[in-house]
Amino acid sequence: MIFTPLNIILFGVVGLLGVGLYGLLITRNLIKVVMVLQILIKAVILALVLAGKLSGHLGLGQSTAATVIVADTIVAVVGLALAVQVRRRFGTLDVPRISTLRG
């Protein structure tokens, strides 16, 4: 039986991870980039909880997951703050147009 609850969560992790990485590859809007990062984080949180369950250390998995939520909220905040500044300075959030440093 492939659709055990654990497997469904595993598919969720893999799916979210795939969506996130694919999103990072194609997204051209900075706000969306930060959002895609959040999708990746969700995959990770799910994975940590799942790992806790699989190894029988449920508490460990959940406490790490909670910590990740806190830490990555800060990253998201900083990212969005930077995006706001970028919008102010460049007048755009389009990735190719804010790519001036190259070579």
């Binding site: 990072l24 990062l37 984080i41 940590l48 460990l60 930077l82 804010i98 440093l101």
Partner: peptide, 26 residues
């Protein structure tokens, strides 16, 4: 700002990978 933004996104992507690794190890 541009440098900071790129740095943030790439680092965050890297840190997600690390966490996935940690989940597997756990």
């Amino acid at each position: 700002l541009e440098a900071g933004m790129k740095y943030l996104v790439q680092s965050a992507a890297g840190s997600v990978l690390v966490l996935m690794g940690i989940a597997i190890v756990l």
